[in-house]
Amino acid sequence: MSIQHFRVALIPFFAAFCLPVFAHPETLVKVKDAEDQLGARVGYIELDLNSGKILESFRPEERFPMMSTFKVLLCGAVLSRVDAGQEQLGRRIHYSQNDLVEYSPVTEKHLTDGMTVRELCSAAITMSDNTAANLLLTTIGGPKELTAFLHNMGDHVTRLDRWEPELNEAIPNDERDTTMPAAMATTLRKLLTGELLTLASRQQLIDWMEADKVAGPLLRSALPAGWFIADKSGAGERGSRGIIAALGPDGKPSRIVVIYTTGSQATMDERNRQIAEIGASLIKHW
């Protein structure tokens, strides 16, 4: 067993022997301040990774656009098919120029040779490549099948209805392509620590998230040296922004954090800054 596999296998073990965790309302004060600064709703939840206990939450059962955070769930569904012998990570998928959609920095470079399922998941999570996500959605049967996968996990809230990039439209009061912070946090925890996926697939999923290259201005910008984070960000229309993450000190994750916002007129930089400040408060009061 590799060191990384050992780390993920012992996530519940280490967490069980940690000192009790206590909620700190100071972080919620910052979440509410972010709402004021952005002029928009902000949803927040913080779960203990081992027990699933909610440590703090704000608007945990209000719907927010998922945006690209759905790509972690998508690759979880792909990995479940791999575990069941219905898919192979090494299978190569070929596609054409007509398949390319807006923001496809990886797939646009491989029109000639195609990409493997493993490479597509890596591109979808680490670079948020939209064509990679659409190609992977095709392998599982489309958005409705991802929703069905989530329902089978016990998540009857999260739903995907459309493809990239239309799913980022974020129309107010439109339930399409949305989740709730509580539902997303619980589902992410199941994917990373539950028995739904094999140990190898859980490790692969967290490795992809740990290698995320496009979430630097968010929670990662607030992390002290030595902290662990595996995350996936999302951005959408109407001032929408979000991030889902597993993080913790001492090089291992111990909490799940989900943050979503929508309806702001603020710039992307300002949305990023507010999420980073929430992260800084979380870490300060850990």
Score class of each variant (00 low, 15 high):
His24Thr: 12
Thr27Asp: 05
Val29Ser: 15
Val31Asp: 00
Leu38Asp: 06
Ala40Asp: 04
Gly43Arg: 01
Leu49Ile: 15
Leu49Tyr: 11
Asn50Leu: 13
Lys53Tyr: 11
Leu55Val: 12
Leu55Cys: 07
Glu56Cys: 06
Ser57Leu: 08
Arg59Phe: 03
Glu61Met: 13
Arg63Ile: 08
Met67Val: 10
Ser68Arg: 01
Ser68Thr: 01
Phe70Pro: 03
Val78Trp: 00
Ala84Cys: 09
Gly85Ile: 06
Glu87Phe: 09
Gly90Glu: 15
Arg91Val: 05
Ile93His: 04
Asn98Glu: 13
Leu100Trp: 08
Leu111Pro: 08
Thr112Arg: 13
Thr112Met: 14
Gly114Glu: 04
Cys121Gln: 04
Ser122Leu: 13
Ser122Cys: 08
Ser122Glu: 14
Ala124Tyr: 01
Asp129Trp: 00
Asp129Ser: 00
Asn130Leu: 02
Ala132Leu: 00
Leu136Trp: 03
Thr138Gly: 13
Thr139Trp: 06
Gly141Thr: 05
Pro143Trp: 01
Leu150Val: 11
Asn152Pro: 05
Asp155Val: 00
Val157Trp: 11
Arg159Met: 07
Arg159Phe: 07
Glu169Pro: 04
Ala170Thr: 08
Ile171Gly: 15
Asp174Ile: 03
Asp174Gln: 05
Met180Gly: 11
Ala182Ile: 13
Ala183Gly: 08
Lys190Gln: 15
Leu191Trp: 05
Thr193Gly: 13
Gly194Thr: 14
Leu199His: 14
Asp207Glu: 15
Asp207Asn: 14
Asp207Leu: 13
Glu210Pro: 02
Asp212Thr: 07
Asp212Trp: 03
Pro217Met: 13
Pro217Ser: 09
Leu219Met: 09
Ser221Tyr: 10
Pro224Ala: 05
Ala225Asn: 14
Phe228Val: 08
Phe228Arg: 07
Ala230Val: 05
Lys232Leu: 00
Ser233Thr: 12
Glu237His: 15
Gly239Ile: 02
Gly242Lys: 03
Ile243Trp: 05
Ile244Gln: 01
Ile244Ser: 04
Ala246Asn: 06
Asp250Val: 12
Lys252Asn: 13
Ile256Gly: 03
Val257Ile: 14
Val258Glu: 04
Val258Phe: 01
Ile259Gln: 02
Ile259Glu: 01
Ser264Phe: 05
Ala266Arg: 14
Arg271Cys: 11
Asn272Leu: 03
Arg273Asn: 11
Ile275Asn: 04
Ile275Arg: 02
Gly279Ser: 09
Lys284Ala: 13
Trp286Leu: 04
Trp286Lys: 00
